[in-house]
């Protein structure tokens, strides 16, 4: 049907038309600073030279992943959010468009971070990358949740704060039965990374669910109400 094909070409056109302004409004500064910090953390074991141990390198990489994730928490900060709420392009599409340019940057940054760690003390690449991806996905899910549940145009700081204040106690107090933060030589490494996979999938699911614009918005409710 001509109408349908017209619609799709229109959607593709809209996508193409949206890419440039969306890329322009991305919080590149936050992402850049956080990424730079993450790379700095990852470089620490190399700077320490002989003193670096596997444990320290793993911690440095985890901190690096946390820094990347904190940068990603600002991804959905969009001062123009309320003006674009009425456009025909769905929010899920807009969110995906915001995410798309960041993913290669994050992948590149993480690759560099991994390479910065000396090969001798580098933890298993797959496992650490999974942890980093889960952290990133949690940050994104938090941002999407905040956007869905509140009217705030800049939920980034609250999300980053929540992520950070959860990550620190979690790494200290997480119950041993469901251990997440384990060392590579630990026998629970594989089981822990199954849990990380579950976490990653759950976070991605939250991101996807929260990507939809709510049918009806409660007035003044939810997170980040005017303070």
């Amino acid at each position: 049907m001509p109408g349908v094909s017209g619609d799709t070409s229109g959607a593709a056109g809209a996508w193409r038309a949206l890419v440039r302004p969306v890329v322009r409004t991305l919080p590149w500064r936050a992402i850049g600073v956080a990424g730079g910090l993450g790379l700095l953390f990852a470089a620490a074991p190399r700077l320490l030279g002989e003193d670096a141990t596997g444990r320290l390198a793993l911690n440095a990489l985890r901190m690096s992943a946390l820094a990347f994730a904190l940068g990603a928490a600002f991804l959905l900060d969009d001062p123009a959010r309320h003006t674009t709420a009425a456009v025909p392009t769905r929010r899920a599409v807009r969110h995906t468009l915001r995410l798309a340019p960041v993913v290669p940057v994050a992948a590149l940054g993480w690759t560099v971070a991994l390479l910065l760690v000396p090969a001798g003390v580098r933890p298993p690449v797959g496992g650490v990358t999974l942890e980093a991806a889960a952290a990133l996905a949690l940050a994104l899910a938090g941002a999407a949740f905040a956007v869905r549940r509140s009217d705030s145009t800049r939920p980034g700081q609250a999300v980053a704060g929540a992520l950070f204040t959860t990550a620190v106690p979690a790494s200290l107090l997480w119950p041993e039965r469901w251990a997440l933060f384990v060392a590579p030589d630990d026998e629970r490494w594989a089981a822990a990374h199954d849990r990380w996979t579950v976490l990653l999938c759950a976070a991605l699911a939250v991101w996807a669910v929260c990507g939809a614009e709510p049918v009806r918005r409660r007035i003044g409710g939810g997170l980040g109400s005017r303070s």
């Binding site: 956080a34 700081q157 950070f164």
Partner: peptide, 22 residues
């Protein structure tokens, strides 16, 4: 004035505490 300064400072502090903890 930016909102991302505080969370990033927290990570830096955490990072230093990690290394100073040795």
């Amino acid at each position: 004035a930016s909102a991302f300064a505080a969370p990033l400072l927290l990570v830096v502090l955490l990072f230093f505490s990690l290394f100073a903890a040795m």
